[in-house]
Design a protein around this nucleic acid. Structure first.
Length: 270
DNA sequence: CGCTGACCCTGACGGC
DNA sequence: TGCCGTCAGGGTCAGC
């Protein structure tokens, strides 16, 4: 489900409902996610107050006085703000209830997500070696160009590699490459600095636009209140294999790259 | 070190 | 109506 814009949209939606609130109790109905939910989660969170809600890559970090809760939504996860009057649905795996009755509810049918407790100021191996944030100044065409020298991978897989840059998933990789006019399968080392500058710009553009639209809803992405995102209307290639390119009318081809759907206009993208 | 493919899991959808 | 195969926005890991 979520790429960076959806995670950021979730963060912004949830933040005002949980900041400064004290946790009354935590209910873990299903602890078998991508990795087991930290067994001490309930005990350590209870009585703690949420100070900040931050994002690193596609991880959400809830800071408390004694440590941080790190949440990843995987492919199908979502976080919603609700209350005790709402009915519990299938796959509502974790409820964090605050003293004012607000509930932060984690829902994840496929269970590819994860929830960890990071004591004190400790970090986690899953976020220790990540690449730069795509919307930070660290990320640029020059950075991509330098990093790509000697790399034989397809450029689409390069930009989807979280050690290179975080937060670029399959939807936005397809979109950015189309906007930049670059074939997804092109070998990373063979692309010029100028074209990487254009690609970096388009990655930033497509992510910013998606955040501004409240994220992309394809199947089950919803905001903290259950409403959908509206960026789907702006997608130019993803999910449009066989349909005409909005730029030149050529039939878009759909192939697989790294076992993921890859859509390309053979005329606009070289 | 770089790269490829298998794999974790449930649900939706299309073809028969 | 049901059964079966395929696919889905993520990311790790073993193996070469």
């Amino acid at each position: 489900m979520p790429e960076l814009p959806e995670v950021e949209t979730t963060r912004r939606g949830i933040e005002p409902h949980v900041i400064g609130k004290t946790i009354d109790r935590v209910l873990v109905r299903q602890s078998s996610l991508r990795w087991p939910v930290s067994p001490e989660l309930s005990q350590v969170l209870t009585g703690n107050r949420i100070g900040q809600v931050n994002r690193r890559a596609k991880y959400l970090l809830f800071t408390t006085d004694s440590g941080r809760m790190m949440v990843h939504l995987g492919m199908s996860g979502s976080l919603r703000i609700t209350d005790r009057d709402s009915s519990v649905r299938k796959h509502d795996h974790i409820d964090i209830t605050f003293r004012d009755g607000t509930i932060l509810r984690y829902h994840d049918p496929r269970r590819f997500g994860s929830v960890f407790w990071l004591p004190g100021t400790s970090s986690h191996v899953l976020i220790d070696d990540l690449g730069p944030e795509p919307l930070s100044t660290e990320f640029s065409g020059d950075y991509l160009f330098k990093l790509s020298r000697g790399r034989k991978v397809a450029v689409k897989l390069l930009i989807m590699n979280s050690k290179v840059v975080v937060g670029v998933g399959n939807i936005y990789a397809n979109e950015a490459l189309h906007l930049a006019g670059i074939r997804p399968e092109r070998v990373a080392s063979g692309i010029s600095r100028a074209r990487y500058n254009r690609l970096a710009d388009k990655i930033r553009q497509v992510l910013n636009d998606a955040i501004a639209s409240g994220g992309t809803t394809l199947r089950d992405f919803v905001h903290e209140d259950g409403s959908p995102g509206y960026f789907k209307q702006s997608l130019t290639v993803y999910g449009r294999g066989g349909e005409p390119c909005l730029n030149c009318g050529t039939r878009l081809t759909e192939t697989r790259l790294g076992n993921r759907a890859t859509v390309c206009c053979k005329k606009c993208q070289r």
